[in-house]
Design a protein around this nucleic acid. Sequence first.
DNA 1: AATGAATGAGTATTCATTCAT
DNA 2: TATGAATGAATACTCATTCAT
Lengths: 216, 216, 216, 216
Amino acid sequence: MAPGGLRERNKRDKHDRIVAAARRLFRRQGFERTTTQQVAAEAGIGAGTLFLYARTKEDLLVMVFLLELSRVVDDSFETLDGAAPLLDQLLHLYDAVSRHHARNLALGRPFAKELMFVHEARRPAMRAFMAGWMRRIAEVIERARQHGEIDAGADARLLATSTFAQFFFRLQSWLGGYITRARLEAELRDALRLTLAGATLHRRPGRRNRSKTTKR
Amino acid sequence: MAPGGLRERNKRDKHDRIVAAARRLFRRQGFERTTTQQVAAEAGIGAGTLFLYARTKEDLLVMVFLLELSRVVDDSFETLDGAAPLLDQLLHLYDAVSRHHARNLALGRPFAKELMFVHEARRPAMRAFMAGWMRRIAEVIERARQHGEIDAGADARLLATSTFAQFFFRLQSWLGGYITRARLEAELRDALRLTLAGATLHRRPGRRNRSKTTKR
Amino acid sequence: MAPGGLRERNKRDKHDRIVAAARRLFRRQGFERTTTQQVAAEAGIGAGTLFLYARTKEDLLVMVFLLELSRVVDDSFETLDGAAPLLDQLLHLYDAVSRHHARNLALGRPFAKELMFVHEARRPAMRAFMAGWMRRIAEVIERARQHGEIDAGADARLLATSTFAQFFFRLQSWLGGYITRARLEAELRDALRLTLAGATLHRRPGRRNRSKTTKR
Amino acid sequence: MAPGGLRERNKRDKHDRIVAAARRLFRRQGFERTTTQQVAAEAGIGAGTLFLYARTKEDLLVMVFLLELSRVVDDSFETLDGAAPLLDQLLHLYDAVSRHHARNLALGRPFAKELMFVHEARRPAMRAFMAGWMRRIAEVIERARQHGEIDAGADARLLATSTFAQFFFRLQSWLGGYITRARLEAELRDALRLTLAGATLHRRPGRRNRSKTTKR
DNA sequence: AATGAATGAGTATTCATTCAT
DNA sequence: TATGAATGAATACTCATTCAT
């Protein structure tokens, strides 16, 4: 009856309303304490309709995560200063994420805890997101490599994942309550500097990369 | 009244029986599908008695984790070849852990997922274990530093955490189903080599650390 | 979609089946020893469905109470002899209740004990029931007042609550095991006579209200 | 070994310490949320020792009740103005109790709810306390009778229980959350006035008992 | 008398998900 | 597509009380 385009748009709207509702509720009350019925009510749809758009409650978490993190990550790349030292660029990218979580600890925790152990059906979406993120980080590193800031033989892909690993471990330590955010930042900076050093030209010993770092 | 030694010993025995029972059951049926009553029954004690020794089911997981990992980690250090290149030593230490989990995926997953987000009351024990582990890794690195294998100015503590971060991220990626164990090994080796490179002497370019690595 | 009437009727039916099932079980085994699952099973519905109709086990007690007492109270007013002396009318009304409880001590006790201290959410229903009951008692008293049986200035509302207070205290004393039912009846009669006397015309001393009383 | 007197005293001390501890805890956290182990700890004795002095947790409630109410009731009689109108004297006696509960709603509620339905073994103590209380109220009434304030033929015993019934019903209504304390006071005054009127001399119509009452 | 380790019974309630309409 | 009533699985934990020392 309705033109395909309109029907499509209706679906799209409903989908967006659901994600927005879930996000609102997850932030307000946390993931666990939010029920799917609450999400449905907040989205203005029936309890059963929800499962036409998200097969699982976990799905909702993934959807919210992808929405939020996409924005945060996109934004972090848009505000990136390509002329800054590579270390600073990476810190900028990772800080954007931890800063975001700091604003929503209640949501950051389930993200960090659940998303690494998500149901198989939802892994492709997560994988795609992560791959895109990693690729973009690798591109930043690649540019630095081309500028001669790091060794010509350096593996940008490996550097991307390895700096991410440094970030992710500290992020979890922080969200898990083992370290403070300040500690996360200090440790991350040192760890990234170390990681980059492994890919840095050492021809002239004095030429070490300078950046606004804490001197230990 | 009763000789302190005896009562103490009884408690100790019971504690050990509980952890052993929990371990057995967790391995056999997984953590989630094991009920506390099953653990109590397997340990030969009353359902309530269990909670005199573990305030929470999560406690049981932590107890089993500490027991298992302590053994695995202790063993990994005992079988360490102090004369091997540092990279190989570290791979030996981390491989011991992933090899252990490979034998018990059902238990490794909850370990990796839950233990970073454990209840506050159980964090000190986790922290202490991690601190001890990190210290021992740092000592290994420190020895390498004294042998002149890595830079005299290198920070052993930072290297320990940073190599661990590399390991942990891949471990989770593997347990979460994102990468295979083979991939974990390959990536970890490259990442560790990169990390160590940042702390490696570069005076004589040809003197690069040799170890049995995969040439990509 | 479905005709409102049908869906409504279904819900109504289910509600009634639940209350009937609860009543049956409470009488047979007592309130405490009846589990909600038993009630659900007896009503032929799922364990969870029960809580769509009664948010709490306490709710079930209130529902059964309102059902039973409504009947008993309604019946007590229908069988009331409006021509009898006021004291006898009141005794008739209150005796109906204690006689009912005598048939189900197992249920009377939790009624008397719990319903005065019910969760806030259930108080309005209780209040409404009590208000209706008190109003009807007051009407009986009011009629007696208009017949000149009690003082023209008497407050029917106050007399209703005050006679009820006399009844309720003895009811609890009986259900609590402090007095026998016989004692309850004797004491109640005397107490009601006393209460009414306070509102009785004394112009002609000899005109005291006559009713079939126990002479102590 | 120890002289009987000392042993007795020790027991007495322990008993008192237990009741004091229970009272403290019940007031602070409420009856239900207080565990017997907490009471034992607070009293500085072993968990098992407690049950040498109170066979049941309910026992503790009764003990605390008797201690508290004995004091309150004793005090209410000591501060009684024997020259005041009977109505005022009774209000004084009952107000003392509700005023006491107002200071400890958390404790008043279980008192009012549980004590009427206490285990058989504890009923004699309750009965004795109530009997003593009633007797003393009856004595007050009896004195008024002898002063000619109420009818020579009035039954002091019946008046005592009946006024108490009026009080108790309103006390429960208040503690159960059905009426406010102000309402309790207003209703009680009216109800007592009514009850006393039933036993008041009416020879000279104008001679009605005067007391500081609210005129409706 | 005192202890405190051991016991084990006992159950309401939530909520993701389904499916008849 | 949408609905929302119906489902039912699923279990950790508390705590009064006991009893061997």
